[in-house]
Amino acid sequence: MTSIPGNGGRNGESEPATRTDIRVTLIIIAVALALWLETTTFESVPTLLAQNIPPEFFPRLVLATIVVLALVLPFEPLILKRHGGAKRKTAPLPAMTWMTAALLAAVAAATAWVGTLASMVLACLLLPALWGERRAMRVIPFALLFPGAVALVFSGLLKVPFEPGLLAPLLGVN
C-alpha cells in the first residue's frame, strides 16, 4: 500500500522491526524517566491550594501512559498479527537532511543579528544552492525578489512585525 505522507511511512527491508522497536522503546522510556525526574523538581504546594490535584499529578499520569505504551511497542506486530510487515528498517538519513537542518538553524540564529528580511534573503540564496540549484540567474533574482515581495505584503501592508536585528541600528535601519 502507498505510504501516506505525514502518517509515518517507513521504508527499507533489511532489519527486523523488533530490534528497531526495542531501541525506540528504550529511548522513549529514558526520556520519560528524565521528565519524571523533572516533575520531582516542581515546587510543592499546600494540599488545600492544589485541591488534591498537585501540579505533578497529570504530567506523571501522561508519562506513565507513555511508558506503558512504549512497553507494548515491540509486541505490536504480534498483537496486530502483522506478519507481512515484520521486516522493516528506517533507511539511514542522507547527509543532505543534516545539512538542511543545520542551515535552517543557522538562518534562524542569524535572524537575531541581521533581521527578518536579510535572513529571508539568506534562506532563499543558500537553501537552493545547498539543494543543488546551480542556475545563478534564477537563484539570485528569486532570493532578492521573493523576500522583497513578502516583506512588502506582510510588513508593509499587513503590518506583521519583522525582527529588525541587532545590526539594524548600525546600518541606520529602524
Binding site: 537552493p128 540549484e133 528569486f142 506582510f154
Partner: peptide, 20 residues
C-alpha cells in the same frame, strides 16, 4: 515548480508565521 525554489519559500512563510 522546482523544489529548490518551493521549499525555501515555505521556510520563509514558516519563519514569518512563527515570529509574527
Amino acid at each position: 515548480i522546482p523544489p529548490t525554489f518551493l521549499w525555501p519559500a515555505v521556510f520563509v512563510f514558516s519563519m514569518i508565521g512563527a515570529y509574527s
